[in-house]
Amino acid sequence: MIEPGAVWTEFGHNIDQQARRRELDALMPEDVGQALVYAFAQPARVLVEEILVRPVKQIVP
């Protein structure tokens, strides 16, 4: 299970992205991708069941 926090996407294109980005400093899609790469790179004996990734400034899930 992958549980990303706030991630910048193409949705919400009408919102002032610069202002919101400064406020939350949301994850980029590449950040979530890196978490997946980590999970898939583990040896077969390792099970990564859950990944929770959030921006540092995000205080609520």
Results as ranks from 00 to 15, higher is better:
K57S: 11
R20G: 10
Q17F: 13
V48T: 08
R45W: 02
D25I: 00
P29R: 09
V7Q: 11
L24P: 03
V48K: 02
V48Y: 01
V32F: 00
A6R: 15
V7W: 06
T9D: 03
E3T: 10
I59S: 14
H13M: 07
D31L: 13
M1G: 02
R20W: 14
I2F: 04
A19M: 14
A44Q: 10
Y38A: 05
V7A: 13
Q34N: 03
F40V: 01
A41E: 05
T9G: 00
K57A: 15
M1K: 06
N14F: 12
E3F: 03
Q17N: 07
G33M: 03
I15N: 05
P55E: 09
P4K: 14
L47I: 03
F40Q: 03
F11D: 15
W8Y: 11
L52F: 11
A6N: 11
E50F: 02
A19C: 03
R45G: 05
W8T: 04
L24K: 01
Y38S: 01
D31N: 14
E10D: 14
G12S: 04
G33V: 10
D25L: 10
E30M: 11
D16H: 12
E30H: 07
R22N: 15
M28K: 15
Q42F: 02
R22F: 10
E3V: 09
L27F: 04
A41K: 07
L27T: 12
E3M: 14
M28V: 14
V37H: 02
A26S: 12
G5N: 08
A19W: 10
P43K: 10
G12F: 09
Q17C: 06
V46G: 03
A39I: 07
I59A: 13
F11L: 13
D31H: 14
M1C: 04
P55V: 00
G33K: 09
R21K: 12
D31C: 14
Q18Y: 06
A35C: 15
D31T: 09
V32E: 00
L24R: 01
V46P: 01
P61N: 11
E49I: 01
V60I: 15
L27Y: 04
M1W: 02
A41H: 07
V37Q: 01
E3K: 08
E49L: 03
G12Q: 07
Q17E: 12
A41V: 00
R22E: 15
E50K: 08
P61D: 04
F40E: 05
V37K: 00
L24I: 06
A39Q: 11
H13C: 08
Q42K: 09
K57Q: 13
M1S: 08
Q58T: 03
V48N: 02
N14W: 13
E49R: 04
L36V: 04
L27N: 01
Q34E: 13
L47A: 00
L27A: 03
E23N: 10
P29A: 08
V53H: 07
G5M: 00
V56Y: 07
V37R: 08
E23L: 14
A41G: 07
P61Q: 07
Q42A: 05
A39K: 08
V46H: 01
E30Q: 13
L47D: 02
A6L: 14
E30I: 12
E10R: 02
D25Q: 13
V60C: 09
Q18E: 15
A26H: 10
Q17S: 09
K57Y: 15
E49G: 04
V48L: 00
I51T: 01
